[in-house]
Design a binder for these strands. Structure first.
Length: 143
DNA sequence: GCCAACGTTGGC
DNA sequence: GCCAACGTTGGC
């Protein structure tokens, strides 16, 4: 089971918006980058992803679950890119900020640090555990 | 097929 | 608001 990180600008689509969608979930559209597209296509139903607020907040605010695997992005006129659906699983009691992640030596290799602009990123098992711990949740409870 | 110019993203 | 990083475009 792989883990992921999805970036969104909260002005456009925030954690609260995601929670408001409930179990119906929400299509994760707008990815226009091939590295991110490959990651989207690797994501399987039931896998978890961190929900990251870029620009405003710059923090991981919760965990979402993939409920529909990659399909053509309806917002892409070229038809080349894909999206998938996610639903909210749980919020982080303590959002984990980019500053905190950068200050944690064990997270120095996180894609969020090394490839700041990649909007869909893989997260390793160890990174998942560390970030969950910093966010105040037991990593096992996110499964 | 190379690479300079340009546009976009996102941290600061 | 600036600008570095990086992806994309288009001329050659």
């Amino acid at each position: 089971m792989a883990q992921w990180l999805l970036k969104t600008e909260p002005d456009t689509f925030s954690w609260d918006d995601q929670v408001a969608r409930g179990g119906r979930g929400e299509p994760w559209t707008g990815v226009r980058n091939h590295a991110a597209k490959r990651n989207l296509q690797s994501m399987k139903i039931g896998e978890r992803a961190f929900f990251y607020h870029s620009v405003h907040g710059k923090e991981i605010v919760g965990v979402v679950e993939v409920i529909r695997e990659a399909y053509p992005d309806p917002t892409d006129p070229s038809g080349k890119f894909v999206c998938l659906d996610v639903k909210a699983v749980m919020p982080f009691p303590e959002p984990v900020t980019l500053v905190e992640i950068k200050a944690e030596p064990r997270l120095a290799d996180m894609a969020l640090v090394k490839y700041a602009r990649l909007s869909v990123q893989p997260v390793t098992d160890e990174e998942w555990r560390i970030v969950c711990g910093m966010g105040g949740v037991d990593a096992a409870s996110t499964r």
